[in-house]
Design a protein around this nucleic acid. Structure first.
Length: 482
RNA sequence: GGUCCCAUCGUCUAGUGGUUAGGACGCUGGCCUCUCACGCCGGAAACCGGGGUUCAACUCCCCGUGGGACUACCA
């Protein structure tokens, strides 16, 4: 990769100053979705751009909802997208001793306390507060009770109630929160597990994360987290909150807007570079440029160019990008990608032939999944004619031409595009007809359809034997219909 | 309800205190042509509203309006 001067400077800076460290911290409660993928991508690009270190941490403290399958699915999706990590995956659940230690520290310093309010009570109070138009925040019932630990009791953080906490966000700018808005959040649950807001702080601090890049939905958590950093005596990292990705109805992207799983796009025949390119342009731009290679992205990406407003997910543009990358891809690459997609009925063992099929169809498909449907005639002995197409083009008048072509083409030496063109040119001259007269009939004879790659391309790919057989089949078909 | 965030074509976005407000997807007219796709050329399409500040605001400020997020012993 060639280094531009700006990046060289950044590399030097990073060696002198504190090394940039970022993390992606998904919770394994499902597949990796589009929004998470973009967050991961931004983290990854930022880190690579700055020669930092990218940590993967699985936030599995919710024992009820976390699964190993989800963890694996997330890892697979990251790998598919090419987002490699330098450390991890770490599992938050395996670090609870650390978290509990920190809880003890806070209790010991009287910065946290035990609370015995039941979830039901709290829920009731919340409802009432909401009904009377008040803030539904914890009312501090147990704050000054100096309770001892009892079964099922939780630990709450004694949050600052005066003053303000400022989040100096790298994307959104300064955000001021009055501390009176914040309540005493639970840091350790009744089951002894830390809550998210506590565990992230501990882990990010202990893992020396310098830049927390995450979804917009966390901005309101940030002031409480900053207070926790301070209470624990940790350095507060930089925060960057990337705007949400919305569905077409401008609400948070979810299943009802269509596929949201990264791997679902793989299954639908998308190339990872298309998804990456699409995702990076949601909230980030570099002038008018639309197409970026990963190397370019690493060179160009930085947080200061990330926009503040949420973006609507547009499947059409993703599809366009996918078509672009399919067109650009080498046939070797596509051969690999197509392996799990080809129907069993297609004999794709002749790789030279299959490769030609792919290159014929490459500019005509938007997803890999569309390919088999367009390729059936290449792999099928007996062409199945589209009824209307046959009706219109496989007529008895055309039959004589087809016969002449079949016999004439047999003598074409070196069945190349040029020679086929030459033959067809001579043929229409001899017959004194326009190419149009025989083009569609030939196409239907060879493919069964009215839409296909060019006649010459088709013939080259199919090879002389198949071409003659298919034309003969068409002649027989015409005669059998009379 | 409260807190916080956001606001340029339908969508993703570029952009500057003075521009014919640019590009891309999609839509659309045409060219190419054996069909389709690709490609190429063209078109329609936007600065949320109201106040300021200023010689001048789409751009800066305020207020509305609209949208979104959060408001859990989820993350």
């Amino acid at each position: 990769m060639n280094l531009n001067p700006i990046r060289f400077k950044k590399m030097q800076e990073n060696q002198i100053m504190k090394k940039i460290r970022t993390r992606f911290a998904p919770s394994p409660t499902g597949y990796l979705h589009i929004g998470g993928a973009r967050t991961a991508l931004f983290n990854w690009l930022f880190t690579r751009h700055h020669y930092g270190e990218f940590v993967l941490r699985i936030e599995d403290t919710d024992q009820q909802r976390s699964t190993e399958e989800s963890t694996q699915a997330i890892l697979d999706a990251m790998t598919w997208l090419g987002l490699n990590w330098d450390e991890g995956p770490f599992f938050q659940a395996q670090r609870v001793d650390l978290h509990r230690e920190m809880v003890q520290k806070l209790i010991h310093e009287d910065k946290a306390y035990f609370c015995t309010c039941s979830p039901e009570e709290l829920e009731e109070k919340r409802k009432q507060a909401l009904a009377t138009g008040k803030k539904p925040k914890y009312d501090g019932t147990c704050r000054e009770k100096r309770l001892k630990k009892t079964p099922g009791s939780v630990v709450r953080f004694r949050s600052e109630q005066t003053g303000a906490t400022i989040v100096d966000d790298l994307i959104k700018g300064k955000i001021v929160f009055n501390n009176e808005e914040l309540d005493d959040l639970i840091i350790e649950r009744g089951d002894g597990y830390p809550t998210y807001n506590f565990a992230v702080v501990i882990d990010d601090a202990l893992m020396n994360i310098t830049h927390v890049i995450r979804g917009d939905d966390h901005v309101n958590n940030t002031p409480r987290q900053i207070l926790l950093y301070k209470a624990l005596g940790f350095d507060v990292p930089h925060f960057a909150h990337v705007p949400m990705i919305l569905g077409s109805d401008k609400t948070r992207l979810s299943k009802r807007h269509g596929a949201t799983s990264v791997m679902a796009y793989k299954d639908m025949g998308y190339l990872p570079e298309a998804l990456v390119n699409y995702l990076v342009r949601l909230g980030w731009a570099h002038g008018d440029q639309e197409i970026f290679s990963p190397e370019e992205l690493i060179n160009l990406f930085d947080l200061d160019a990330v926009g503040k407003s949420p973006a609507v997910f547009n499947p059409e543009k993703l599809l366009w990008l996918n078509a672009h990358y399919i067109k650009e891809a080498t046939t070797d690459r596509l051969m690999e990608e197509m392996k799990p997609i080809w129907p069993a009925a297609f004999d794709t063992s002749d790789s030279v032939f299959t490769q030609k099929v792919i290159s014929d169809l490459q500019p005509r498909v938007k997803t890999l999944r569309e390919l088999p449907g367009m390729a059936d005639f290449y792999f099928t002995e007996n062409v199945k004619y589209d009824e209307q197409a046959a009706e219109k083009f496989l007529t008895s008048e055309i039959s004589e031409y087809l016969k002449a072509i079949a016999s004439g083409i047999a003598s074409v030496q070196n069945f190349s595009k040029e020679n086929i063109e030459e033959f067809l040119k001579n043929f229409i001259q001899e017959q004194n007809i326009k190419f149009k007269v025989i083009a569609q009939p030939l196409r239907v004879a060879l493919t069964g359809k009215t839409v296909s790659p060019g006649i010459d391309e088709l013939m080259v790919t199919l090879g002389k034997e198949r071409v003659i057989t298919k034309i003969s089949d068409a002649i027989n078909y015409i005669e059998s219909r009379q």
